[in-house]
């Protein structure tokens, strides 16, 4: 059979290429139609003024200048960007930090570790919309579970999502609750790949839990850390669903939960209650987000890969 195929390949060398091309074509078409074409359209629209809902003239970098340097747009852009940066740092510290500790605890295979593994991962399978609504209810100032519990110890109604100082933190908390299981699983998989001989040798040399965690496990799970860091970065700068459900399209209150995803959406597509659609400015924002995320990801990947090799 194999001999027959090799014979056919020798006789008709183009057949194999044709076969591969035929298999790739549908996927490529989908990619071109739904990824590449919209991306290129966004690049093109970013250089046009929109009068109404149609491009009315080429204006060069004007849309970019407006969103970066002209008030109030620039204030809104930088405000949203700041919240994305805060989200990234908070998720790295609290979500991934906690995930690392949980993964290390699960690695030790204490009694009941399997059920804990399931519990930690369970929220990940829920949709972001469900999680957003759930936590919005929990954090309701009058009827929410959180304030009801706090009320038992005499703490009055706190408007978690209505106060500029607590809204972003509350949304981040909901996001961490939702996603904690994912980095936990990735880091745990990385830890489980470490050779048992290495861990036992370290134990025999007298390494305690802390030393084992910081000197052995942490350096050896560098590839997993790379994945988690890059995905957290991309997720933080494309953050949309949970802020949208919990704080609305305007990033309320007073823009204190606004992120680039929300700002892009309401700029490009408008909102029934705030105003008009501007595909030009929206596309400029989308291009800037793409360039920033792609650029930083490429640099970070290079750095993190080098770190993996050094380890």
């Amino acid at each position: 059979m194999a001999e027959g195929w090799r014979h056919s390949e020798r006789a008709f060398p183009w057949r194999r290429s044709l076969w591969i091309a035929a298999l790739l074509t549908p996927a490529l078409l989908v990619m071109v139609l739904f990824v590449l074409w919209p991306l290129l359209s966004a690049f093109r629209f970013a250089f046009y003024e929109f009068n109404g809902l149609r491009p009315s003239g080429f204006i060069g970098l004007e849309n970019f200048r407006q969103v970066l340097f002209e008030k109030p747009y620039s204030d809104w852009t930088w405000n949203a960007f700041k919240h994305n940066v805060i989200a990234f740092l908070a998720l790295m510290l609290f979500e991934n930090g906690t995930a690392f500790l949980i993964a290390f605890a699960l690695l030790k295979a204490l009694p009941g570790h399997r059920i804990h593994q399931v519990i930690v991962f369970l929220p990940v399978v829920l949709s972001a919309v469900i999680v957003g609504f759930l936590w919005k209810l929990f954090l309701h100032p009058l009827f929410g579970l959180v304030n009801q519990l706090l009320g038992l110890v005499g703490i009055g109604a706190i408007p978690w999502l209505g106060n500029e100082n607590t809204a972003l933190g509350s949304i981040l908390f909901a996001n961490i609750w939702h996603w904690l299981g994912f980095p936990t699983l990735v880091l745990l998989a990385g830890m489980q790949r470490i050779s048992k001989d290495v861990l036992e040798a370290a134990r025999l040399d007298g390494a305690g839990d802390y030393a084992l965690m910081t000197k052995i496990v942490w350096p050896l799970i560098a590839p997993s850390v790379t994945i988690v860091t890059i995905l957290t970065f991309i997720g933080s700068f494309n953050w949309f669903e949970i802020p949208y459900v919990m704080a609305g399209l305007t990033g309320s209150p007073g823009g204190s939960t606004d992120v680039l995803g929300l700002y892009f959406y309401r700029t490009a597509f408008g909102s029934t209650t705030t105003g008009i659609q501007d595909f030009g400015q929206g596309s400029a924002l989308a291009v800037l987000m793409f360039v920033f995320v792609a650029g930083v990801t490429a640099i970070a990947l290079r750095y993190l890969r080098r770190r993996e090799i050094e380890q």
């Binding site: 109030p72 106060n163 305007t250 309320s252 209150p253 823009g255 209650t273 105003g275 008009i276 501007d278």
Partner: peptide, 22 residues
């Protein structure tokens, strides 16, 4: 509400800040 920024965008962004005293 005819052009950007609309009065609605501006007012909706600021009124919660004013009511919370910031």
């Amino acid at each position: 509400r005819f052009e950007k920024p609309t009065g609605s965008e501006l007012l909706q962004g600021d009124i919660t800040k004013m009511m919370s005293g910031s």
